[in-house]
Amino acid sequence: MVATTRNVKEFGKVAVLMGGDSAEREVSLRSGSAVLAALQGAGLDVHRFDPRERPITELVTDKFDRVFIILHGRGGEDGTLQGALDCMKIPYTGSGVLGSALSMDKIRSKQIFQATGLPTADYRVIRQHESVDLAAVLEELGGTVMVKPSLEGSSIGMAKVSSVEDFEHALQEAFKYDSNVLVERFVNGKEFTVSILADKALPSISMTTPRVFYDYTAKYESNKTEYHCPGGLPAEAEKKLGELAVKAYKALGASGWGRVDFMQSQQGEMFILEANTVPGMTEKSLVPMAAKQSGLNFKELCLTILETSFRTGA
């Protein structure tokens, strides 16, 4: 996979959007700093840009030619920024407004996966202040569920529960982040992720953690999380998983680059969890790991992602 055949001058003046105001700000700053250093090392005219510190209208007044979006979560990954950049006619990396918005919304994503016949675990939606028989929901979904705020990333606000008492507490925590909460049947098995780059699947990665599930700590802080790339599947199963990831990504209208997460049941069936249109790019992140397995170093990966700004966005 070739990073780019363009001369560095063709990219023009590039802003790396990082930080922002979401719950994932710290991870975004780490991702953005890594991307900034890589693009500087490639000789590009690239600059740090934190929307918390300056209005995005300065992208126009400072005459930036394109934007590398590495804002995770709300305000960067949910379509709002993409819409603003479209209005300002500034090209940007990755998915457009619709793909970003749908991928960020776990509930809408599940509905689209079901409607298009893609495998995803059974679920219920619980809305704040709604009266719900939690015992009945637990029974309906197999006794153990994952509770997830619909519009958060990095496993923020998530919990695994199997009792009504824990369920109530998990909902209270999830409602701190969102008024709509996804309650999903727990799939007991191994977690996989497939990175998408230039609309093609990279080698899968499987993750194991001693924690209850692959949560924020396991992703960004723990030294005990183990990663396997490729994920250990037979060649045919690896191929099918990659194809499934691309189908899921396209079903949401997402494009360019990103990541699709899966759970594999004890019977070997893959269930789509969600898609991420602006995944992490830190030293512990999964997209760089998969890219390296494909023969791309971090600098080449960043250039390939920046290349998507020539065909998406404005």
Rank of each mutant, 00 (worst) to 15 (best):
V164I: 09
M158R: 11
F262M: 03
L44E: 08
C302T: 06
K200E: 12
V35T: 01
S206Q: 01
T93L: 09
V137C: 00
I90C: 00
V97C: 10
F167L: 11
S22M: 02
V183R: 05
L244A: 10
M158D: 09
R25A: 04
D65K: 04
D86N: 14
L202W: 02
M270Q: 05
E130C: 10
A121E: 05
L17E: 12
S179R: 14
G142I: 08
K247H: 07
H228V: 09
L171P: 15
Q114E: 14
T93P: 01
R185P: 05
G280S: 08
H228I: 13
N188D: 15
T208A: 06
E77A: 02
Y220N: 14
C87F: 14
E221W: 00
P210D: 06
A275N: 00
S285R: 08
E173P: 01
E165H: 13
G73R: 03
E58F: 07
L138E: 10
E139R: 15
N7H: 13
H169G: 06
Q111A: 07
D261N: 11
S31P: 06
P51G: 13
T225R: 05
V97S: 02
A291C: 08
E269D: 12
T4E: 02
G157T: 04
S100D: 00
E168A: 13
L36V: 09
L17A: 06
G43A: 08
R311Q: 12
S33C: 07
P234W: 02
R48D: 14
G43Q: 05
G280L: 01
M207T: 06
V161G: 00
P203M: 02
R6T: 09
Y92M: 02
V260Q: 07
V125K: 10
P91E: 00
V181Q: 11
E243A: 14
D86F: 10
C302L: 14
A15Q: 02
Y220T: 03
K219Q: 01
E300Q: 15
M1H: 13
A38Q: 04
V35W: 00
L134F: 15
H169Q: 13
Q172R: 03
E26M: 05
L244G: 02
T4G: 12
T312C: 10
T277D: 03
M104C: 00
T277Y: 08
V164M: 05
V260W: 02
S204D: 04
A251T: 04
E238R: 02
E130K: 11
V161Q: 10
E238I: 01
T217K: 14
G142K: 12
